[in-house]
């Protein structure tokens, strides 16, 4: 196995919104009533490389559109027992959708 650095920008290929709290574990984010917030999930095409599955920063169907330009960021999951902030990778739109 060899590590490869992938690009950080691409286009949205397919998406959904996770509308219910996943089982925890394994999910590290908040799941309690009133704490869970729906989040976007999608595949982003990284040109010349692959499509990568990731969290999206947007959870509103009206603000997501296939083909829109996306860039890499992070989203918070939890603060662990040592007090460290646990984050995961995510993609955010580089422009807003013209409805």
């Amino acid at each position: 196995m060899e590590s490869v650095h992938l690009g950080t920008q691409g286009t949205l290929w397919a998406w959904t919104i996770q509308g219910f709290a996943p089982k925890s574990p394994p999910y590290l984010g908040p799941v309690a009533d009133g704490q869970f917030e729906p989040y976007g999930v999608g595949y982003v095409v990284l040109p010349g490389e692959l499509k990568v599955e990731a969290r999206l920063t947007i959870a509103d169907p009206k603000e997501l559109q296939e083909g829109m330009a996306m860039r890499l960021t992070t989203v918070p999951l939890q603060t662990d027992e040592a007090g460290d902030r646990v984050v995961t990778f995510a993609f955010e739109p580089m422009e807003t959708v013209n409805a």
Partner: peptide
């Protein structure tokens, strides 16, 4: 580490 399920993917 289960980063995949941990991130809220894998469903």
């Amino acid at each position: 580490a289960d980063w995949y399920g941990g991130s809220g993917l894998a469903l």
